[in-house]
Amino acid sequence: MAEQKPRTSPPPAGPWYARLATTAGRPAVLAATLIMSMPGEYHVAKYAGWSDPWAYGMPFSLSAYAGIAAVVAATRPKGARGRWSATLGAGFAIVLALAAQVVAHLVETGHMDHNQPWLIAVTSMVPPAVLAHLLHLAATPTPVVAPSTSVDTTPVAPVVERVEQAPVPPMPVKAPAVAPAEEVRPALEAAEEQRPKRPAYRDPRCAIVRPLYDGGTRPTTSQMREALRPQYGKVSDSTLRGVIREEIEEWEPDLADLPPAIGRTA
């Protein structure tokens, strides 16, 4: 088994005032530097010819540009597309902010004349250059980095115990669910021979009334009428007794000797 590396414990946290200065001091310093830088950048915009309130856009454009470029440069992995451009833009934004402060203070103290063509030209190019580079960073896709699954310890192969399994007995051969056709055919032929043969009636309504005789009684007129009503509607008594019953009993004369149904009108 490979020897595992000892885990190092994290460094102990500092005192509470040190942690407070680290957490609360960063945003405080950031806000203070932004506030102190705004007048110089505002005055440089005024020297270049911008009037109020447009001159106030110079501090915000430089500050936002520097922050966005720094974040993009810090979050994109090494060698990713757009990281070098973001790093260059962050450095360029810092140079612009420093130059704006220096120029503004030199002009305010009388060491420099603000009415110079190169100063006006360079300052006028700042907003479109910042916008173009921010659009370039926004159009550059951010690579998706898969989480690392590497560990410090050397992987150890798991120990697999071999388990002896009892032999599985062979499955019994099941009988076929359906009998062969040679065995089924005689049974079907016997059933067909035992089935009563129905004559070919001239009137198809006789085939509906004929099963009423299977109860051992001769059906009444009302019984025949109810049996034919769903398919043929109302049938007259003369047709029931003189046509349908007569044809059925003509084919099977022994049906006329059956007793009539009790409680019914013949």
Rank of each mutant, 00 (worst) to 15 (best):
S63W: 00
S63C: 08
S63N: 08
Y65S: 15
Y65M: 00
A66I: 06
A66C: 14
G67T: 05
I68G: 09
A69W: 02
A69D: 10
V71P: 13
V71L: 07
V71W: 14
V72M: 01
V72L: 06
V72I: 14
A73W: 02
A73V: 10
A73P: 03
A74N: 15
T75C: 00
T75N: 03
R76V: 04
R76A: 05
R76L: 10
K78I: 11
K78G: 05
K78Q: 14
K78D: 13
A80C: 08
A80K: 10
R81S: 12
W84D: 14
W84A: 11
S85N: 01
A86D: 00
T87N: 07
G89M: 14
A90I: 01
A90P: 03
G91M: 10
I94V: 15
I94E: 06
I94M: 06
I94T: 10
V95N: 02
L96S: 12
L96C: 06
L96E: 11
L96T: 05
A97L: 01
A97S: 09
L98P: 00
L98E: 07
L98N: 02
A99C: 13
A99G: 09
A100S: 13
A100K: 07
V102K: 02
V102S: 04
V103F: 02
V103W: 04
H105W: 10
H105F: 01
H105E: 13
L106H: 03
L106D: 14
L106N: 13
V107L: 08
V107Q: 07
V107T: 02
E108G: 11
E108S: 13
T109Y: 02
T109E: 09
G110R: 06
G110W: 08
G110S: 04
H111S: 07
M112K: 00
M112H: 05
M112W: 05
H114F: 13
N115K: 09
N115C: 05
P117F: 06
W118C: 14
W118I: 10
L119D: 07
